[in-house]
Design a protein around this nucleic acid. Structure first.
Lengths: 322, 322
DNA sequence: TCAAAAGTGTTATCCTTACACCCATGT
DNA sequence: ACATGGGTGTAAGGATAACACTTTTGA
């Protein structure tokens, strides 16, 4: 007899690698509709998998051939999709963040798979501030959110700012200079609640008029929410642990390192200060060789000083300011 | 037919409140052996519970009568206990951290329950540095760990420090001054691996000779590991978000606030700098009244400025230095 | 009057931020 | 020569860490 507590656990993976100028995630593209993109996942099998993370690693290797380095559990996510009536088990989504290092062929996946890399900014265009404050924010997002908040916060007094407006300001910044790159989940959550992303309409959250502009590419199930969590986690982690090197090739230029960090946190950084940070933290050492492929003066190549882990708990990279 | 992927999810809660001078957790004390203390939990029921956190809140309210404030999912934990052969479902433990505010009667739980509060330092005596560096570290822990590491790291060259020794130094501090209060999991993990806590012997991790001194009170299953995760999370969170006020009464003195923070991070803080922190951060406002119960000069009472959340993303409390 | 705890003022130091400038290579 | 990107030095500002000292109560 089936216990009323029986569920199954889907181990969903946000697998990230760095491509030319943006972080990319591995996604399955099965169907043909707007929800075509889905996070790859495998079911946890308690009989064959000793641990949850072990289960994840085993299906990733099996299905994609990628060998994962850094791997971190994100959270267990509620399945918000309506219950299937076919008696199949309720599924709980356990999200993981995994990093795949750059390097010759390391990120290639077999051609026969319906999986491929896609820029994470395709799903979150408002998160990329490297060139400028994205137009989509002022042209579409803020007006639509304010409209929603005005409706939502009708009960707020005129003196106090409504809770909804507060959330908007916190998430998207009070002014141009206080954008917080870590609030990815808060921002997506607002857009979802306000009915501005396609997933929100799909899930029957239709008490709000759907915006007619699609804000970023959608994903199946709660894939985009899990991705938002992964982005936030990585952007946070980056600043306190040297995880960036899990994504780099063995050798890299300082500018290359800086661009990688920038692509992850979606902001451009101050060159000199970035270099001093790296220098002070003793995170890298020169490999002795140079790269001539950068266009101007040849750049010295560096590698990660793995020994730093033996010296003290290695810190990450500060990205404050610009 | 039972799917091979079927599991059940136990929602385990680390419920924390502040008692006189230490943080306390709610624990069930059922049996009579060393593993008597267990984290309270309830099974997730997908038919009645809409969400995972909802499921947790509902059984906590039902069984304990406590109304939870802040609640945060920690992680899904592997069940390390050997599989039962009785065909019952494999259980995955989903850990939560929940805070219960102080105040008249707010933390009282019905007398008919086999649950009660217990200092978290009973389980982790080496984590309380408020009075001094705990003797247990130098008298028992470090010698035992070094013995284990010497055995473990036999392959290390004489020039390089062995990985095991590195982990010990990182977790317990290179010297007296660089204790990192957030590394609770790393420290417990080391003790577990080295066979120095009773749980490690119980779980059959007996390749190492068991130490004959019990290091802290044990817990059933992986309860102590989950508790370690909760402590680490709270100590980290404390410094970036104003969660401390979820544990305080409505009104408090600055010294009371400081002692609460100290009890959580297990370190004593510099009074003047603590006050300046609080002042600069605009976290509290005077209530206008004073408390005469503190022994010396009456102390002004303060309350949390809830509006701060409307002004910007409120920060937490720095605890760096001493 | 003295112990005990509350509360204030000031200074040295370091890290962050920002600016201005020089160097080596390809075209 | 000049454009392009690599690389360095130095100064202003703010937060942190540490210091010494005064005030108000109860016993």
């Amino acid at each position: 007899m089936m216990s009323s507590h029986a569920v199954q656990i889907a181990l969903s993976a946000v697998i990230i690698c760095l491509q030319d100028n943006y972080p990319a995630i591995l996604r399955n593209s099965g169907s043909d509709d707007v929800f075509a993109d889905a996070l790859p996942f495998g079911m946890f099998n308690p009989e064959t998998h000793k641990t949850l993370e072990g289960g994840l690693r085993s299906w990733v290797t099996e299905k994609t051939g990628l060998s994962l380095g850094y791997c971190e559990q994100l959270q267990a996510f509620d399945d918000k999709s309506p219950n299937k009536a076919d008696g199949s088990l309720h599924t709980v989504n356990l999200g993981y963040l995994a990093l795949s290092a750059s390097g010759t062929g390391k990120n290639t996946i077999p051609g026969n798979l319906a999986a491929s890399w896609k820029s994470w900014y395709a799903f979150f265009p408002w998160e990329d501030w490297r060139a400028r404050r994205p137009e989509i924010i002022d042209e579409l997002i803020i007006p639509a959110l304010n409209k929603w908040a005005a409706h939502e916060g009708a009960y707020a007094t005129t003196e106090e700012i409504s809770p909804a407006h507060t959330r908007i300001k916190q998430a998207f910044g009070f002014n141009n200079n206080d954008w917080n790159d870590e609030l990815v989940v808060e921002r997506y959550g607002l857009l979802y609640e306000a009915g501005l992303v396609v997933e929100s309409i799909r899930d029957g959250n239709s008490s709000h008029k759907p915006g007619n502009a699609p804000l970023g590419a959608a994903m199946a199930d709660n894939g985009r929410f899990i991705l938002a969590t992964a982005m936030a986690s990585l952007r946070t982690r980056l600043k306190v642990r040297p995880v960036i090197f899990e994504l780099m090739s063995d050798e890299f230029t300082l500018t290359g390192l800086q661009q990688s960090v920038e692509s992850l946190c979606g902001r451009s950084l101050h060159k000199q200060n970035f270099r001093r940070q790296i220098d002070n933290a003793n995170l890298v050492e020169p490999s002795g060789t140079t790269s001539q492929t950068t266009g101007g003066r040849p750049a010295a190549l560096y590698r990660f000083r793995k020994q730093i882990i033996n010296e003290y708990t290695a810190r990450g990279i500060r990205t404050g300011g610009g």
